[in-house]
């Protein structure tokens, strides 16, 4: 098993836990999607795997193991080696993680050289190659741009490009396509699945798009109010949901030809 999480509780400050009793496991090449209520703890769960909870968030109970290693006992140095290479993350609002005063090219090169000994020109060539996979027109131009000169969806694709550079063993993707129009989204979803296929990457994705979840996932987790309501085979849950929340969620998906609001 690549990743195994048991009885996980996560707490911000010293309040009652925000997320309780999460259990999941993932093999290489598997895609797990987490869907659910806004504020239910999806981002919290996947950030905990990378040891990057925001503010004073911490794991207050349970175990997380990656390739048999207990993630709770890693030193800062061990985390640094793991992050960005073996495990990488596409952050929710990943576009906003970009530094506003440095060019995209500068940041991309820095990221690549942090994890490899590529020369400047090798790193730039690598960056261009991956940006092209993200269907960004004129990748060379993107490298010389600043974040504010790109559209929301272009910034998001830069974030995805960085995260897949080193074919991580585990890719954590928090709303990776939320800023993309449907045609670009379809292309990116297919690229992500290609990465999984090529490199045996396992992926945990958070999305509000149940169509994308249905298309991509092997496993599905449904969360509401800090708890896991359903977890298992994606097709089973989508065709035969057990919890009322999942039923409501599925019924709320807007469909063309559905009931109009106005």
């Amino acid at each position: 098993m690549l990743l195994e999480i048991n009885d996980l509780d996560i707490t911000y400050g010293d309040n009652t836990p925000t997320v309780e009793n999460v259990k999941l496991s993932l093999n290489e090449g598997e895609i797990l999607t987490i869907v659910g209520e806004s504020g239910s703890g999806k981002t919290t769960v996947i950030r905990s795997i990378l040891g990057l909870l925001s503010g004073d968030g911490h794991v207050s109970k349970g175990t997380l193991s990656f390739k048999g290693r207990d993630l709770k006992t890693l030193s800062l140095k061990e985390w640094r080696e793991l992050r960005g290479k073996d495990i990488s993350m596409i952050f929710q609002d990943s576009g906003n993680m970009l530094n506003p005063v440095q060019t995209i090219g500068h940041q991309f090169r820095e990221y690549i050289q942090l994890h490899s000994d590529m020369s400047d020109s090798e790193a730039d060539a690598k960056a261009v190659e991956i940006l092209k996979r993200m269907h960004l027109p004129n990748a060379e131009n993107i490298l010389s741009s600043y974040a504010f000169e790109l559209s929301g969806g272009m910034r998001q694709r830069v974030g995805i490009a960085m995260a897949i550079t080193f074919h991580p063993q585990l890719l954590l993707a928090d709303e990776p396509t939320s800023a993309l129009d449907v045609t670009t989204q379809a292309q990116i979803v297919k690229e992500l699945m290609q990465v999984v296929k090529e490199s045996g990457t396992a992926m945990i994705m958070v999305t509000h798009n149940l169509g994308v979840a249905s298309y991509m996932s092997d496993k599905l987790m449904v969360m509401a109010g800090g708890r896991v309501l359903e977890y298992g085979n994606a097709r089973d849950i989508l065709t035969n949901p057990q919890s009322n929340y999942t039923k409501t969620l599925l019924a709320s998906v807007p469909t063309i030809g559905g009931k109009r609001y106005v």
Partner: peptide, 24 residues
């Protein structure tokens, strides 16, 4: 509204759209 509901689950999105329509 520039992608004002893209970070919402579809159930919350439904109630936000209903609110916008009601105010309209």
């Amino acid at each position: 509204c520039d992608e004002a509901t893209s970070a919402l689950d579809v159930s919350v999105q439904d109630s936000i759209i209903k609110l916008l329509v009601k105010l309209q």
